[in-house]
Amino acid sequence: MNWIVTFLLVGGVFFLAIGTIGLLRLPDFYSRLHAAGKCDTLGVTLLMTAIALYNLHAPSFGSVLVSWKIFAIVFFIFMASPTATHAMTKAAMLVGVEPWQKKKGTRK
């Protein structure tokens, strides 16, 4: 049990780290959103699943309720993260941030 929790925790921190490195390294705003939107969602999901599992170590009514709440947070983040990404992309499009392009003129 402890090993599963540790494994999930390490995986979650790994994906959060990837998201952060991506946020620093990628060339333009839109590709940064790729790193932010996907890796963060997965990393947070893994970490919170680990915490909820560990919390069920000594099952009682209260701890089951707390684990349900943690899963509610995970569900909410699943809903909210793409929506926030979408809002930011649309704002960037309307304001006119230019996407980074490999070759000029490939934009359809």
């Binding site: 979650g12 959060l16 946020l23 940064r32 932010a36 963060d40 970490l47 983040i77 993260s81 930011m88």
Partner: peptide, 18 residues
């Protein structure tokens, strides 16, 4: 850009939740 700052703040918030 301003929107880059928003992404950064959003990611800080997500990490703070955990």
């Amino acid at each position: 850009t301003v929107l880059d700052r928003i992404v950064g703040v959003n990611m800080i918030g997500t990490k703070t939740t955990v």
